[in-house]
Design a protein around this nucleic acid. Structure first.
Lengths: 206, 206
DNA sequence: GGTGAGCTCATCCATTCGGATGATCCGGGA
DNA sequence: TCCCGGATCATCCGAATGGATGAGCTCACC
């Protein structure tokens, strides 16, 4: 009895590649492809795959984390295996929190993908070694949660805006912006806007 | 007479995908795959493909731009078609300058890739519409060239380093760092370190 | 031998930033 | 009802940053 798989990726070429890799193995059976998160949920509802292989970046529409959460809410819920190019902390943790069975970097060998699918289908957790330690570290040292407003400020910050400009953009005074920034700096453990930008990128907050 | 193609990409899955897409068309014939730039040059020397389909990001080793330059130096030189996920100005212009026949974003439809290969094989230039205008704009308003040292400073800047830290890292005084920064700001047309970081990212300088 | 580009350093000065501290207001939960 | 977190604003102050300007030094190139 082979494992049924739904492929979710916004790049046609990657979908073809995954299908080619998976079709070559008798242990898995690709039963569908989706280009967006919405399409993935619709197809999963009808096709009931054992495993959904899902890209994190899905272009327009809902992202991989939201898709994962929606898929895990289905009955029966498929195992969701995240497959992506990048490995930013916030995204890894976000996907795991949303119920993903695991996380594979796209540059792994086809055999690792196949092995990951089998393990995910059995209910195991699948993490590349480098990621596993980072996830555990993340659990010990949880990401500080920034508020909505703080994230907004952070976005403007990352575009190089000065406090005065951020203030104008958000319709608040400069004092408020400085207040938010002080909180952001504390939460991120930094002491300058440049380093805050760097940290935010590293952690995938923006 | 079909067009012979060499696929260059560090991701096995993408290579499989491209091969699947290209194999489905009678007009092209995939005659080889390479995972690195070095391998691409070696294979191209022996296989003499009409077109090399090359990713810009190749993991370790030389990047797509360097690979393009090396390929174009061969005799006979294959047409090089860049295929990638991102579209950063410096990279687009760099690839064109290195002799690439064109540039396609990875999220295009398989038919567009096939059409691009045919056009590249005929010696035409291949650019996605959004990119074409940017390239022309780039020719009118060329990217300011930063010196080696300025790029070094920029890298430290992007990691959030203060002037004092950059100075220490580069074994120069803070005055020198400020001098470099002033030049960087002028060349990038900005007036703050944060915006310089933003611009540098946008233009693919770091 | 002159010229220019790039790297280095310096000084002066205005602006911005970051840190500390504290206050008000509001909404939701104990 | 009272308390707390989040958002807002304010003031003070030292440190960092950015702008202007000038200058010496090396190296490649003409």
């Amino acid at each position: 009895m082979s494992v049924t798989v739904l492929i979710v990726d916004d790049h046609p070429v990657v979908r073809s590649g995954l299908r080619a890799v998976l079709d070559a193995d008798a242990g898995v059976q690709v039963i569908g492809e989706a280009a967006t998160g919405e399409e993935a949920v619709t197809l999963a509802t009808h096709l009931r795959p054992d495993v959904v292989l899902c890209d994190l970046r899905l272009g327009a529409g809902i992202d991989g984390i939201q898709t994962t959460a929606a898929l895990r809410a289905l009955e029966p819920a498929p195992a969701v295996l995240i497959l992506t190019t990048f490995d930013r902390d916030a995204e890894v943790l976000g996907a795991i929190e949303a119920g993903a069975a695991g996380y594979l970097l796209k540059d792994v060998a086809p055999s690792a993908i196949l092995a990951g699918i089998q393990r995910a289908a059995r209910g195991d957790t699948v993490l590349t070694p480098e990621l596993a330690s980072r996830v555990l570290k993340g659990l010990r040292d949880p990401l500080p949660k920034l508020t909505e407003r703080e994230i907004e400020v952070l976005r403007h910050l990352a575009e190089g805006a000065a406090n005065k400009e951020i203030a104008r953009a958000l319709y608040v005074t400069e004092a408020t912006v400085k207040s938010h920034l002080a909180h952001i700096f504390t939460k991120l453990g930094v002491d300058s806007r440049s380093r805050a930008i760097h940290q935010a990128r590293e952690r995938g907050l923006i």
